[in-house]
Every structure is written in C-alpha cells, then in structure tokens.
Write a protein that binds this DNA or RNA. Structure first.
Lengths: 193, 193
DNA sequence: CTCCTATAGAACAATTTGTTGCATAACAGA
DNA sequence: TCTGTTATGCAACAAATTGTTCTATAGGAG
C-alpha cells in the first residue's frame, strides 16, 4: 500500500521552506512557526511530522547534504581528470544549496552527533572520488605509488572548502587551474620514473 | 577616571559563561537567561550590558576569536620556521577555546556580517604570519621568488582547519611533520637555483 | 560621609513553543 | 459512488522564553 500523497506533499513543501530559511537566515530561524508562516501549513501539522525543533533542523540538513552522484571520469590524463572532478566539486560549492548550507552543518557538527555523521559521510564520499582519480593514474603508470596520495587528496578537497567556507573568497576557474596545476606538479615530482 | 570595577567584573563573568555555553551546547543556547542562570547575574543586568541576544553572541564570538600574539620566528631554516609556526597554530586549534568555537563562528559568518569580519580578520592575521616565514626564506636565498607563495600559504593553513573543523580528524605531531615536509618540498622544487 | 551608579529582584506584557480536541477535507478500497 | 480511514486546519490552551520597567539596595568614587 502506497504512502498517502498528502504526507509526501507536506514534507516536501515544509522542507523546501526550511531549506530556504536555513540558507537565508541561519539555523536559528528554522522553527515550526517560521516554516508554517512560509508555507501556510499549520503548526500542528508540522509538529506531527517533526515533534521538536531539532528533528526539523536535522531533516533540513539531511535533505540538503545528500551528495549528488558524480559520474566518475578516470580515463586520464591525471590533470584532466582532476580538473574535471574538482570543477564539479567547486560548482557544487558555488551554485547549489550545499554550498550555502555547509557552514551551518559544520557548526552543528561540533555539538550534534547527527550533523557530524552527515558531514563525515559526505566527505568520505568526496574523498573516494578523488582517490579513484589518483588510483587510475597510478594504474596507467602516469604517476607511481610513491606519491603521498592521502595528503594530496586532503589538500585537493581542503583548499576549495577552506577558501569558500572560512575565507569567503571566490572560487573561480583561474584559481582552480592553479590549484590543479600545483597538485599535479606534486604528484609528478614524487614519481620515480 | 577609571571604569567601575563592577562593570568589568560583570562583563567578564558573563562572557566567561557565554563562552562555555557556546562551546558546550552551541550558539543556540547562548541566551541572557542561560547566562544568568550560569552566573547568578540577574537578567536585567545582562540586558543592560547587551540589549539583545545577538549582541551577546557577537560579544562571545569576539572575545574568543581574538588572535593570540604569535612571537615570530623567521631565522630559518624554512622547514624549522614553518614547523614551529604551524605547530602553534595546531596547538591553538587543539587546546584553546578557539578550536572549539571556530565552527560556530564559521557558521555565523555565512549569515552575519559581524561574524564574517571576525573570521576574515583572524585569517588575515594567520596568513601574515605564514607569509613572513616564506618572505624571510626568500630573503635568505633559501628559496627563490618563483615559488607560488600565495598558494602555499593557503594550503598551509587550509589543511589543519579543514582536518579539524570539517573532517573532525586528529591533528597530531606526525601529521604536522608530513604536512610541513610536503610544503617545503613544493617550495624547493619551485626554486631555481 | 555623600553622591553616583551598577546590580538584584520582582512584576509585567509579548512572543514563542508545544499540546490537545474537533471539524473538515482528501485519500484508499470496494 | 459509497464508506471507513487519516491527514490537515483551526482554535484554544499551558508553559517557557524574551524583553521591559520600576524600586530598593549595595558598592565604589571623591
């Protein structure tokens, strides 16, 4: 037996609004009252779906933090693969809700176990993508297993996140080109050929 | 004429408590009521010092985010200077209130202009320290001006912050050694001698 | 000792938070 | 179409929180 469409519609509308509030005004303003006023859904209905403020916020976090599927490109060369993958990652930070919401999740993670799970899983996923690119390059013999892959992965992902979330600097194509160039240079100078 | 010691005492006690609440439970729980209960200071007094919840939170942020003075060490060699400076930075992230509070500031910065100022100024200060180390190395001729200093600075600082705030991984001596090694390697392979 | 001022405490209104009961409307199944 | 089920809207409500204001008191400055 299928789920009542009213449940689905309510959840969707409510979380859409919660997401928007989260992005525009911060986690402090995500309340049943605010969502009710934004959507027209009555407060009592919202309380039935999410019994307290925290579960509402968690739901909003989870909805946004779901990692988009990144179609893998590992056919080389390394510079090209890396540039493409980090380009997608950068695009997500710049143009999707995730980019705007990430700071809130980061903060929540420091006191909230649920939020911490959300972000560590998300990052594990990102790391796996980058790792696949390096592994492919090693398999092709483009670089050797001597390169400190762990460190490179961390630097590759850390830079755009740090730049966006903490420094509030722009993430543009020029910056990314330089970043990828440097990563590849490190990879190559650490390869024994 | 000096300031009334009662004002100073109240401010200090209140912000001490606010800081602790901020670290333990997150920004959501920093309220006049909570601080009053924690300190015994009456609510009305707190309201007179900080007229609304936001100014109280901002005050707590500012107090914690004040960068400690880092005594400069730029007498070389680069590896040693860098290791020492990033060691201090790592220690601050690991063992001072700043490390626990930074995520909250990061989040607040995405919707709050005041918090953004706090963190960008803080980072400007950090970057200047790292920049001084590289400049000194260039002056000594240890590395040449060909190295992409801007990028190196960003990577140097980004890695520990990313690791701590976003990945919730440990920051220990071994990791730092590897990190500094890699940074120096990049600097040297980019120097024409 | 006296004036000034910060604080404590209580009383208060306004807002927010969470609960409950009931009428209504929408859905699923026959 | 008819019927039983269930989600919603709405209003009333209690409780907690937020912010204001007044007065008495205690501590500090000259």
């Amino acid at each position: 037996m299928k789920e009542d469409p009213r449940l689905i519609a309510t959840r969707q509308a409510a979380l859409d609004a919660a997401q928007k509030i989260l992005m525009d005004k911060g986690v402090l303003h995500v309340t049943h009252g605010a969502v009710s006023k934004a959507t027209g859904i009555s407060r009592s209905t919202l309380y039935r779906h999410w019994p307290d403020a925290r579960s509402l916020r968690d739901a909003a976090f989870r909805r946004i933090a779901t990692p988009p599927n990144i179609p893998p490109k590992t056919d080389g060369p390394l510079q090209s693969d890396l540039r493409w993958l980090l380009g997608v990652l950068m695009g997500a930070l710049n143009d999707t809700p995730w980019g705007q919401i990430a700071p809130q999740v980061v903060a929540a993670a420091s006191t909230d176990e649920e939020a911490r799970l959300v972000i560590t899983e998300f990052m594990k996923d990102r790391f796996a993508s980058v790792e696949a690119v390096f592994s492919a390059a090693i398999s092709r013999g483009e670089i050797t297993a001597d390169v400190p892959v762990e460190q490179l992965i961390e630097l590759a992902v850390a830079a755009p996140y740090f730049r966006k979330l903490i420094r509030h600097e722009t993430l543009d194509e020029d910056w990314l080109d330089q970043h990828v160039d440097l990563l590849c240079q490190i990879a190559k100078t650490n390869s024994r050929h």
